[in-house]
Simulated assay, not measured.
Amino acid sequence: MSTLDGTVLVTGGAGYIGSHTVRALREAGRDVVVLDSLELGRREAVIDAPLVVGEIADKDLGSATCNEHGVTQVVHFAAYKSVGESMGSPGKYWRNNVAGTAELAEACIATGVHDIVFSSSCSVYGTPEIVPVTEDAAIDPESIYAESKAMVERILYWYGQTSELRSVSLRYFNAAGASFDTRIGEDWTYSINLVPLAMKAVLLKDRRLQVFGDDYDTPDGTCIRDYIHVNDLAAAHVKALDYLGNGGETVAVNLGTGIGSSVLDVLNATAEAAGEEVPYDMAPRRAGDPVSTFADPSFAEATLGWKAKHDLTEIVQTAYTWHKSQLDDGR
């Protein structure tokens, strides 16, 4: 039986990108089971997939879940992801992101699961010397969060050398947006990303956004990033599972649009979606913020047959519609 005929285990599948990927997998006809602690995830985001509540570090639970549900492939999202928190609480990140992944890999190997798609990050590159960023750029993490992602990539590589495990590490650029039907989106409660913060500023009317630095060597003086729609990211995970199911070898792949958008580009797009300006103040630069970083997505297209479909306008419009719907529902 092909691994594509079995169930996909999605760890962290009740989170933001995880829940969109669960939905994409279900729409592709795959059976899915979600493993999530629900510390940061939302039960309702899983929609119709079975949910197992627990930790990835629980090897026995991981093994039992794989056996019970006939798991043949894994998509691994379950991780803490705050750069600032990682620098203040490093042990939390080493234990969950790194040691927890080792236990998950052991559970997979013990139950004959050999395909893992890992949610990595462009932060493994640190401040890239050359943009657009290709996969052969130097790995140079600048935070414990980023280091934990880089370490997991290496852990999966070495499991591939010592077992039949094969992996695709997807190095995301800046995930944003929401589902087009407003069914699921990004909970802004804990998010420190620009798009949800801009939405808070324009919708809640009780705060002003801080823009860190307007004196960079960019067209408008603000930092440039590669924003990618969460639905495009979800589609890439489906493609990565297909790649592994068809015999693909372990690889790391950038996921981005190849287009850089500045902070002010995002705020202007938000104003267009909302019909009003985003209230903001300029603040000094933050230490460690790269001036400009965006992906060269050509390897993803060549390897996975994947290319981003949605632009910044769609990203911001779906995010705005989602967040407004949550306020309208009283959430």
Rank of each mutant, 00 (worst) to 15 (best):
G84E: 13
G258R: 04
Y227F: 15
D311E: 11
T293D: 10
G88M: 13
V131T: 14
V34F: 04
Y243P: 01
S179I: 03
D5F: 11
Y93A: 07
A45D: 15
A176S: 14
R95S: 14
V168W: 01
C108G: 01
P284E: 08
Q161H: 12
W322I: 06
A24S: 09
A178H: 04
D265E: 09
W94F: 15
L327E: 11
I315Y: 04
W306V: 05
S191M: 09
C108P: 00
D140I: 03
G260H: 04
S19Y: 03
D115F: 05
V133D: 00
S148C: 11
W94R: 13
S89G: 06
E147W: 09
Y16V: 06
A110Y: 04
K59N: 03
D329R: 15
K239E: 12
I130W: 09
A138Q: 13
E135M: 09
S261G: 07
Y320N: 08
V22A: 02
E39G: 14
E301A: 12
A236V: 08
A269E: 08
E129D: 15
V202C: 05
A176I: 07
F294N: 01
D232K: 06
D140E: 12
T162A: 12
L9P: 00
M1C: 12
K324D: 10
G288P: 09
S262T: 15
C122S: 15
N231W: 10
E314T: 14
A146V: 05
L156H: 01
E301W: 11
P132Q: 06
I116V: 15
D242N: 14
A252M: 09
A236C: 09
V202A: 02
V32S: 02
H114A: 12
I315M: 07
V124A: 01
A105D: 01
A319Q: 13
D181T: 08
V195I: 13
V253F: 03
A146C: 12
L241C: 11
V113H: 00
G70H: 11
L104Y: 00
L197M: 14
I17F: 07
S19H: 05
Y320H: 15
Y157R: 12
S167K: 02
I192H: 12
L156E: 03
D265S: 07
A198Y: 01
Q161C: 13
S169A: 15
C108V: 01
P284S: 04
V74P: 00
L40R: 15
E276P: 06
T111N: 13
T65Y: 04
T65M: 07
I130P: 02
L170Q: 02
G330L: 09
V22Q: 03
V131F: 00
D60C: 01
V117S: 00
T162L: 12
G247F: 10
R286I: 12
V291H: 05
D217A: 14
E277I: 11
V278L: 08
A99P: 01
K81W: 10
